[in-house]
Design a protein around this nucleic acid. Structure first.
Lengths: 239, 239
DNA sequence: CTATAATGTGACTGACCGGTCATATGACCG
DNA sequence: CGGTCATATGACCGGTCAGTCACATTATAG
């Protein structure tokens, strides 16, 4: 936790420091983040930094806290019920919301990503996050199996791995496409991007996601509950 | 390229240096690889290192060369023809061979992986490898579409992204499982692991891969060429 | 105005880094 | 023996880093 001194700072100075720190952590992995650079860019003395934070890890933890709180708030809007709308619709919403957050807070998101890349940490924040994500998907798969959305004989762990891989990859793919048509402006901390979920309405993006969900649904879906090929056709094909 | 001096070294000393370097690059990303540590662990003087190599990048390039040559040789064995055996069988072979290599040379493989994680390089080796991998999968998808193995209306780029994501993730998943039942011994450079493709014969691994390929095949396969639900059933379902 | 507490400051410490260089060693040759 | 040449060595250089500390400045209170 930052020291009280930090929170006593005038708002603009405090926010300036946070913004500079976010930029630094977004552009460098943990070990390459330089406190010297941060204080230089923020226009404060090195000693002042250590009046505000215990050390580098303290600052980092604070930023991660900002990130997770912002994401928690963002993701809790309009959250649908997976048992009502079906597992794949819920999944689509989750990915869309995650992408929306990334578009609204790209720098803050990158702070979290560069955290994942390297970790000289207690029991590795990386592993914790990964385990949590896996748990989330696995639970989703099990729910889907109970509801008959997903093939019941599918190993939930494998399914979770595949879900995470595909959705993450598709998300990155979309972000890449979107960012190439972007002005590259450095986003401002806590700036409001209320309308940013709109890119999801772009036809190409919709199509892309629809196709991805389609692949997952046909690949993992409960074929017993879907129209099966009847015996006559099967016989014809085998002849 | 290492200097001639390096190749004039007695074999055991040279191999000792290579082994230490592989371990160092396997355990740290490029910027955290310490020449000081390498020379200490290899029992040579700092100055001697610079008699053998121009600089850190020279050593790294040499290791990458060893890796790619070893992998090229390993992957060129028993390579099946994608046009004969069908795209998905070919894909299964590719993943199996890649996994076999990783099991035979785990430390060397990690050298390549930590290369991917960070790169302060010319035009980023990372990006080059990624582009090459994507190209490989994309070409495979296009071939599959021409052969009727893959749905013709599927965007090959998206399909390539998904292939890479799923197969990489499934590979890591298997490696994780396998390594947990392993003695953790540090492998010796260029040691022969001729029988290592055998783990692919383990029933659980076979099942896992079969299921993964099944998901991809059903998700991306050419449904027009597969037994489609007939109109009667379709109508029944819609009622 | 003075006493006290809070905050700001940047030179400094000690550690590690990649890379250099003057010097030492030892093998081979005449 | 002397001369030459490849190789070995580790102290050293300039740099960056996280973190400290003695001191300066400012705010607050009596």
């Amino acid at each position: 936790m930052p020291k009280q001194t930090f929170f006593n700072l005038p708002d603009d100075k405090r926010e300036q420091i946070v913004q500079v720190a976010i930029d630094e952590f977004a552009d460098n992995d943990y070990d390459h983040v330089s406190i010297s650079r941060i204080v230089a860019r923020a226009g404060i003395a090195k000693g002042s930094f250590y009046q505000y934070f215990d050390d580098k890890e303290d600052l980092y933890g604070y930023l991660i806290g900002l990130l997770s709180e912002a994401k928690r708030r963002y993701m809790s809007l309009d959250q649908p019920d997976p048992t009502h709308s079906g597992i794949f619709a819920y999944l689509r919403w989750t990915v869309e919301a995650g992408l929306g957050f990334e578009l609204a807070f790209p720098r803050l998101t990158k702070v979290g990503l560069s955290a994942l890349s390297y970790s000289g940490f207690p029991t590795s924040i990386d592993a914790q996050i990964h385990a949590a994500t896996q748990g989330f998907y696995q639970q989703l798969v099990e729910t889907g199996q109970r509801q008959g959305d997903i093939a019941p004989d599918l190993d939930p762990k494998l399914a979770a791995v595949i879900f995470e891989a595909v959705l993450t990859a598709a998300g990155h793919y979309v972000m890449e496409q979107v960012l190439h048509a972007d002005a590259h402006g450095s986003a401002h901390y806590e700036q409001e991007h209320a309308g940013d979920r709109l890119i999801m309405e772009h036809p190409a993006v919709k199509e892309l996601f629809a196709r991805t969900m389609d692949i997952l649904e046909h690949g993992m879906g409960n074929r017993a509950a879907l129209p099966p090929p009847n015996e006559k056709q099967q016989a014809e094909l085998e002849s």
